[in-house]
């Protein structure tokens, strides 16, 4: 992913670093808005990572992703951050588009939050947006892996439940996969 062509310009990098906290909060809020209000409040306010695994995992992963977008998109770390968010949203009540929409939402947040700089200083977000597109493509893969894994787990469970009984009845079936 680190191709050198889409390096973020030093000026942009500096602004994105300075405004990190505000941008991250807004980005997180966009994700929270996809949950019912009572849940969003809980996910945001409860800081204990064991009492609130959804909120804390998503926040940490967003922070990690933001850092990667700024620093250079190390494939392993990007994948881990995306996976921890999408793995949760892939089993919640979301359509695929809703589950991964958070990636595109950062674009809107950046445009909103940095409107002044874009207008007055001609700040360009082109390189950041290119990175978000890479993230989006990777997100499709991860979302599909999660959903496919769910079905695999179902199959494995059914097989395991019957395997011993079939074995005792001398009905061992070698599934060719």
């Amino acid at each position: 992913m680190k191709d050198g062509k889409n390096n973020i310009l030093p000026g942009t990098h500096e602004i994105l670093t300075q405004r990190k906290s505000a941008i991250l909060q807004k980005w997180y809020q966009r994700i929270l808005d996809s949950y019912p209000a009572e849940a969003a409040r809980f996910f945001k306010e409860e800081q204990d990572r064991f009492a609130n695994p959804v909120g804390t995992t998503i926040y940490q992963a967003l922070e990690g992703l933001y850092e990667e977008i700024l620093q250079g998109m190390e494939a392993g770390r990007v994948r881990a951050c995306l996976d921890s968010i999408i793995r949760i949203r892939a089993v919640q009540d979301f359509s695929p588009s809703q589950a991964i929409a958070f990636i595109f939402q950062l674009k809107h947040v950046l445009k909103e939050e940095l409107a002044g700089e874009i207008r007055e200083k001609g700040l360009s977000l082109e390189a950041v947006e290119a990175r978000l597109e890479d993230l989006a493509l990777l997100a499709f893969d991860i979302y599909m892996q999660c959903r496919e894994q769910l079905w695999e787990l179902k199959v494995m469970e059914i097989k395991n439940r019957t395997a011993r009984i079939l074995e005792r009845a001398n009905l061992t079936i070698n599934f060719p996969y």
């Binding site: 009572e38 849940a39 809980f42 996910f43 009492a51 609130n52 695994p53 959804v54």
Partner: peptide, 17 residues
Amino acid sequence: CADKCHFFIGTGDPKNM
């Protein structure tokens, strides 16, 4: 009790409180 249920924590669905 509201935020103590694993189903609420995992789903975010208020009817699981």
